Simulated scan of single mutants.
Amino acid sequence: MTAAPTAAPAAPLVLRGVRHSYGEAEVLHGVDLTLRGGEAVALLGPSGSGKTTLLAVAGGLLRPTSGEVTVLGAPLTGRRDEAARRVAYVLQAGSLIPYLTVEENLLVRRVVTGRRPTPADRAEARRLLEAVDLAARAGRYPDRLSGGERQRACVAQALFTRAPVLLADEPTASLDRARGRAVTELLTAHARDTGAAVLLATHDERALDLTDRTVSIEDGLLRDGH
């Protein structure tokens, strides 16, 4: 008897016919996008093109006016706790809790997902802070960091979640060329090494050679790059 073929795993992130409006102004006009596991995709577009809105809808921070977002084949609802388990963010505004140290800001993500940090978690947090050149700042509070240091801490925080989808909104905006490229390398390596899907919204075209492909958005319409 021939065994039934094994179904292909669901893509980590799929957007189908996604539209989003602020009042009467529609910002996204029927966006379709699929991110495969292990893939890092750059999302390009000028200011006001809809990049940030697209990331917010893709991660469950905003509910689409119409259309569907799925993570690993399951619809992404508007529940923040559910989205936090399935999608990690690097946000322009930052996501660091001001009364926690840099290291604690990573470890608290384990608490959010329902378990106490282990010694292995602490070792992983230290490894990631070393990778973003913040090991010496692990015990500092966010207000004692520079803008670029806070941005790198947010990158480490997102990587620490081990979520199947990672969305990064301008993750290199406050960084010089060398550190910006190093952060992009870290994000793309994360996709390859863990099978996560990574979407980077950026104006910075200096490290696009590190991503697997690019897509562009303009006036709320998505176009495939390469």
Rank of each mutant, 00 (worst) to 15 (best):
R140H: 15
G94V: 11
L28G: 12
L187A: 03
P46F: 05
G147D: 05
D143W: 14
Q157V: 03
G59A: 05
L208Y: 01
D32F: 10
D219L: 11
A10V: 10
T2A: 15
P64I: 07
D212T: 04
V87D: 10
A136N: 10
D32C: 05
D121S: 06
A178L: 09
G114Q: 06
E68L: 13
R86E: 04
L199V: 00
H29L: 14
T34C: 10
A42T: 02
E24V: 13
L44C: 03
E124W: 09
G73T: 02
V111Q: 08
Q151E: 04
T65A: 13
R79S: 14
R181D: 01
A158W: 11
A125V: 07
P5Y: 04
T52A: 05
G59L: 05
L44D: 00
R192M: 00
A158G: 09
A201V: 10
L128V: 01
E82Y: 09
R36H: 13
G45W: 14
L107S: 11
T101S: 15
G30F: 12
R213E: 04
N105M: 04
L72V: 02
R177F: 04
G78E: 12
G59V: 06
R127G: 02
A58N: 09
R181S: 03
A25V: 15
V132H: 07
G225P: 14
R122L: 06
S146T: 15
S146N: 08
Y141H: 08
L54C: 11
P64L: 04
A40T: 07
P171Y: 01
T2Y: 05
G148W: 12
T202E: 03
R150V: 01
R140D: 15
V112D: 02
R213C: 07
V14K: 12
E205K: 08
R162M: 02
R16I: 06
Q92P: 13
D224S: 13
S146E: 10
N105F: 08
L208R: 04
T101R: 13
E104V: 02
H190E: 12
T34I: 01
V14M: 11
A163L: 04
L210P: 11
V90R: 02
A196I: 00
A163F: 05
G225V: 05
A163W: 02
F160C: 03
T188R: 00
F160W: 08
D209T: 05
T202V: 08
V102Y: 12
G59D: 05
A138E: 13
S66G: 12
L187Y: 06
A125N: 08
H20L: 13
P9W: 07
V132D: 06
A93N: 15
G17H: 08
P117C: 11
